[in-house]
């Protein structure tokens, strides 16, 4: 039940402080999503959505770094992946 899916905000449709809404594109399926918990999210951002609510703005830089590594993983080893992770964590202040 705790599954949440990332989607891209394509339009902010309502800016009320307690009821911020926007249209979010999930690989072609567009749904209205409640964005009240992510006031910083804007058009172009990816948000993680669960039962109609965005729970966070995805750290795209982090995601892209891991993806770029995954794509070249056949030439790399786990230690290098760890280094990437450590760099990401230092940069984002996350441990």
């Amino acid at each position: 039940m705790c599954l949440a899916i990332p989607g891209k905000i394509i339009q902010i449709t309502q800016q009320e402080k307690d009821n911020r809404l926007g249209k979010v594109n999930f690989a072609g399926v567009v749904k209205v999503v409640n964005l009240t918990y992510v006031p910083q999210a804007d058009v172009g951002d990816y948000v993680t959505v669960h039962v109609g609510f965005a729970l966070n703005v995805m750290d795209q830089h982090d995601a892209e770094l891991v993806i770029s590594h995954l794509n070249s993983v056949s030439e790399q080893n786990e230690a290098k992946l760890d280094k990437v992770r450590q760099r990401i964590q230092k940069r984002s202040g996350r441990s």
């Binding site: 891209k8 990816y46 993806i67 992946l81």
Partner: peptide, 21 residues
């Protein structure tokens, strides 16, 4: 293909991690 989902289903990468495991 949902962006930021399908990329994390990279079979080669998963096999590499499991080999290291």
């Amino acid at each position: 293909m949902i962006k930021y989902v399908s990329e994390f289903r990279n079979v080669q990468a998963v096999h590499k991690i499991l080999k290291d495991l």
